[in-house]
Design a protein around this nucleic acid. Structure first.
Lengths: 231, 231
DNA sequence: CCGTTTCGAGAGCAGTGCTCTCGTTTCCGT
DNA sequence: ACGGAAACGAGAGCACTGCTCTCGAAACGG
C-alpha cells in the first residue's frame, strides 16, 4: 500500500507530523485539552503558526489525531493486561483489565478526559475512532467469551424486551456467539459502571465519600465480576 | 439575615446578576460551556464587557454560578420525582429517580456536561457545590432507607475490607443508619453506573451498540435495583 | 450636603484560531 | 536536465477572546 521509497518531502512531513503531535500531547498532558494552543505548539517547535496548518487543517483535527492515539494507547494497555493475566483465570483477567484501564486513566488524566469527558464541540467521531474506542469493551467481552461455559449467575438476568432484545441479539451474533444476550447486556452495564466510576474518581465526584478510591474500585470490580457471572 | 429593605442599587444589582446568569445559561444551552463568551453575554445585554466584571470576577466564577444552579435544578428534579412516586413502592421510586436524572440530562445536555463532563480547568468546587452535588446520591439512598427492612439480596454483598470498610461505616453512620455498609456501597456502585451510562449515551459512546438507549436504560435500572436489593 | 463608594463605558493588552499572500524549495514528467 | 506544478514556511492581518485600568457619572449614607 504505502510506497516503500519515500521522497525527502514525505519523510520530512511524516516526521514533522509526529513532532507536532508529540508536542501537542505534551501540552495536553500538562494543561488539558482546553488550554492546548496551536500557536504555542508552533512556538515550541520554532515554526510559524500558519505553517502548522499544512499538517493539520484545524485545531479540532489535531485534537482528533490525539484522540485516536489515546484510544489506541488505552486499548493496547487493556489488551496487554488481559494477555498477561493467566488464561485459565477469567476473574483475574477481568481484574487485570479493569485495573489497567484505571491505571492508564490516572496516569493520563487529561487524555482520559479528552476521551470520556465532555466531547469537543466541533468534533464528530470519524470512522477510525469508533473501532479504536471499542477496544476496551471488546476486551471485556473477550474475557467473558473465554469463560462462557463456566458463567455462574447468582441473580438471573432479567429478560430482554423489545428493541433491547434485538439490539443485544445483533451484537451477540457479531461479537460473542458463545455468550447469551442477557450476559452481554450485563457486560455493557459493567462497562458503563467501570468508566462511570473512573470518571467520578478523576473528576472529583467521590471526594468526601470513597476517596481515596483504591479499595472501592477493587471491591466494585469484584461485584461487577459477580454481576456478569464470572466464576 | 438579608436586609428586608433594599436600596435601589441592591435591587438593580440582584436583578442584573440574575439577567446575566439567564443569558449565560441561554448561551450555555445553545453552544456549550466551551463557547460561552463573557463578551457575547455583555453584548446581548447591551452593556460593556468590562461592566460584567462588577458582577462576576471572572469567567470561571460565572461558570461556577451556573454549575451551582444546575446541580440544584437536577437535585430538585430528582427529589421531586421520588416524592411523586408511590411511597410504598421503593422500586417504582428508584425507577422514577433514575429516569428523572436521565430526562434532565437529555433536556440539558450542555449543563449535564458541565456538571459531569471534564471539569473546567481553573475551577475548584466551593463548599456549596459539594452539598448541591450530593442531592442525587442522597435521593438514591433515601429510597434505600425507605425499603431498608425489605431488601432482598440475591447475590450476597462481598465483605468490605480495610479502608473501604471504614469509609463505608463512616458514611452509614451519618447517612443511612438503617442500611448496611455493604448495601450502601452497592448504592454508590449503582450511582456510578447510572451516571456512567447517561454520560456514555450523551457523549456518544453507545452509538453502534445500544443507541437508542431507552430500553437499555430501563433494563439496567431494573438490574441495578436488583443489585442493591430492592424488592 | 458632601465625601465615599459603586457603577458603566471605553481603550488597551496579550493571547487565540484561522486566512491570505508571497517568495522559496522540492518534486516529477518530459 | 529543465521547467511547470505542487508543497512549503513565514509574515501580516482579521475577528475574536478574557481581563485590566482609567475616568466620569451616579447613588449612597453620615
Amino acid at each position: 500500500m504505502a510506497p516503500v521509497i519515500r521522497t525527502a518531502r514525505e519523510r520530512a512531513r511524516e516526521e514533522l507530523t509526529l513532532e507536532i503531535k508529540r508536542e501537542a500531547r505534551r501540552q495536553l498532558a500538562d494543561e488539558g485539552a482546553q488550554r492546548l494552543s496551536l500557536r504555542a505548539v508552533a512556538r515550541e517547535l520554532g515554526m510559524a503558526s500558519s505553517a502548522l496548518y499544512r499538517y493539520f487543517p484545524s485545531r479540532d483535527d489535531l485534537l482528533t489525531a490525539l484522540i485516536m492515539d489515546a484510544y489506541n494507547a488505552l486499548g493496547e494497555r487493556a489488551e496487554a493486561a488481559v494477555a498477561a493475566a493467566p488464561a485459565d483465570d477469567p476473574r483475574e483477567r477481568w481484574r487485570a483489565l479493569c485495573g489497567s484501564v484505571r491505571d492508564w486513566a490516572k496516569e493520563h488524566p487529561h487524555e482520559y478526559a479528552l476521551l470520556y469527558g465532555t466531547p469537543v464541540p466541533g468534533y464528530r467521531a470519524p470512522e477510525e475512532t469508533v473501532t479504536a474506542a471499542l477496544r476496551v469493551i471488546l476486551a471485556l467481552l473477550s474475557v467473558l467469551r473465554g469463560a462462557a461455559h463456566h458463567l455462574d449467575l447468582r441473580t438471573p438476568v432479567r429478560p430482554l424486551r423489545g428493541a433491547l432484545a434485538e439490539q443485544a441479539a445483533g451484537l451477540v451474533a457479531v461479537l460473542t456467539p458463545e455468550v447469551s444476550a442477557g450476559v452481554l447486556t450485563r457486560a455493557v452495564v459493567a462497562w458503563t459502571q467501570l468508566f462511570g466510576m473512573i470518571s467520578f474518581e478523576l473528576f472529583g465526584h467521590l471526594v468526601g465519600s470513597f476517596d481515596p478510591a483504591d479499595e472501592f474500585f477493587a471491591h466494585s470490580v469484584e461485584e461487577m465480576a459477580d454481576f456478569v457471572g464470572l466464576p
